[in-house]
Simulated assay, not measured.
Amino acid sequence: MLEGHQLLGFGFFVIGLWHLFNHTKLHALGSKSYTSTLWFPTTISRYMELHFIMASCTIFIAMELFIAPIHHQPFDPDGTIPTTHLHNFEHSSMAMSFLVYAIFAIVLDMKCTMAQHELTHFLGAIAFTQQFLLIHLHSRDHVGPEGQYHLLLQLLITVSLATTLMGIGFPKSFLVCFVRSVSIVFQGVWLMIMGFLLWTPGFQPKGCFMHLEETEEYVVKCSDDEALHRAVSLVNILFSFLVIGVTVFAMSFYLVMLRRYGGKVEYVSLVKEEHYREEDGFVKPKGTIDLENNMDDDESQKKSMQE
């Protein structure tokens, strides 16, 4: 579903970029006092980020279960779930996991529990685990270019999951949070690109096309093995280009933020420092050797001996 991929991808992109900005800013302002977190308050509202996640998940669930289906409800007349709507429930379950995370993140913050940091990360890890499992065990047979897109997406989810769990044991590690933020941004970009290139007519690779199955679902198929191999290779090439692009963006973003918010270190030459010490009345301790004077004395002695 094009709208679903776009909406979900845009949500990941915004949250990832917001995290990248805040983590880098906090790190630049004072790395010693830096502590990782999964969400950030704003001047407008303390829970604006979490409310954004809740609203996005609610809209996504509504689109999957009530807006996208032809009859605007996902059930058959007998109350069972039809085969054509299994993937709608799977997608909705992913959004529900992040919705639960956002709700309990607010509750834990209001209650000021001692284990707030650990439990919030645990909830985030559950959401990423749910996302990974539902994509890996999807009811639709992801084959061809569609399968390759989802396979590489699982790689990004694994990075997000691993760094979220690592945030529990390494709360002061900027690198863990930085990598997690970049992986979330990458997820958003990849989901939006997947939606455009897979489900937009005319954007499929040469030799591939959208085909309406008997289950009334559109799948991307290729005319022959050569076209299939080419399509999968193009997905891999696109992913590798995006890895380079996202890496360049992340490093450039870090350097710009460090220059903008980082503390300035002043360097003073040794000659000036010695001059300032003399003006302040600094006296060399007894027995201190003046290397410059000794070198001058040695040179003068050598010249006198030669004469």
Rank of each mutant, 00 (worst) to 15 (best):
L133M: 14
I135N: 11
L123C: 03
F178H: 06
V220C: 01
R140E: 09
H229W: 01
I61S: 02
H91R: 05
Y218F: 14
D109Q: 09
G16E: 15
P205I: 14
Q148V: 11
Q116E: 14
L153E: 13
V268R: 02
H91L: 10
H72D: 06
A105P: 02
F282E: 06
F10W: 09
E307G: 05
V243D: 09
L86G: 00
H117W: 02
A55C: 04
K284M: 05
L119P: 00
K286D: 14
L108Q: 03
L137P: 00
L50W: 13
W190L: 03
G16R: 13
C57Q: 05
S240F: 09
H72C: 07
I81Q: 06
H71Y: 07
S300F: 13
L108F: 10
H136Q: 08
V268L: 04
F13Q: 03
T215F: 11
F249D: 04
I53P: 01
S97K: 01
F249P: 01
S93I: 08
P205H: 13
D78W: 02
Y34R: 00
S233E: 12
F170L: 15
N22F: 09
Y34T: 00
L99W: 15
F104H: 10
F174E: 11
R140H: 07
T247Q: 01
I81Y: 07
V143Y: 04
E307S: 11
T42K: 07
N22S: 06
I237H: 05
G4D: 09
A28I: 06
L228G: 05
S233N: 11
I106N: 01
Q301N: 09
R140K: 08
F203L: 11
M94N: 05
F10Y: 12
K272D: 04
I15H: 02
H136L: 09
F196A: 01
P77G: 04
E118F: 10
G202A: 13
I157Y: 15
G188R: 03
L255I: 12
V182H: 03
Y149E: 02
E214F: 10
P82Q: 03
S269M: 14
E214K: 13
P69H: 13
D224E: 07
Q6H: 09
A105R: 01
L175F: 13
M194H: 10
M54W: 08
E278H: 05
S45H: 14
